[in-house]
């Protein structure tokens, strides 16, 4: 679960590394982008001038790591005046689907 914007702190990158590690080890994982986390999906990102790895480039490898379930909270997008065309991945879901996702999760890691 990604709740924070990229680059301002290490949370987004650490979350992504945790997801990639799950994929590499064959552990099933779904990702939820919610609240400030939806900024991570904005394109185009170019982080070269701030000396950080490009989060969007790393995230685009997720399908190769067998992480195919990527969800995006609809209300978080709306609050930020973002639409499906602004984001580079994920299926948009409403709050009840977010609740269902929580309810069916064995563990939740929040970044």
């Amino acid at each position: 679960m990604f709740r924070h914007a990229p680059y301002g702190n290490a949370l987004a990158r650490e979350g992504l590394e945790a997801a990639l590690a799950c994929g590499a080890m064959g552990a099933k994982a779904s990702l939820l982008y919610i609240n400030e986390g939806v900024w991570q999906l904005l394109e185009p990102q170019d982080s070269s001038a701030i000396d950080c790895k490009n989060q969007a480039a790393m995230a685009s490898a997720l399908p190769l790591y067998d992480i195919d379930e990527i969800w995006v909270d609809e209300a978080s997008l709306q609050q930020r005046n973002l639409t499906a065309t602004d984001i580079n991945a994920g299926k948009i879901i409403d709050s009840s689907r977010v609740q269902a996702l929580f309810a069916t999760s064995k563990n939740i890691l929040s970044f």
Partner: peptide, 15 residues
């Protein structure tokens, strides 16, 4: 170059 990652076995095989 594309993903800024060194792939472990599974993603490497898939790629």
């Amino acid at each position: 170059q594309r993903f800024q990652l060194s792939p472990p076995m599974r993603p490497l095989v898939k790629y």
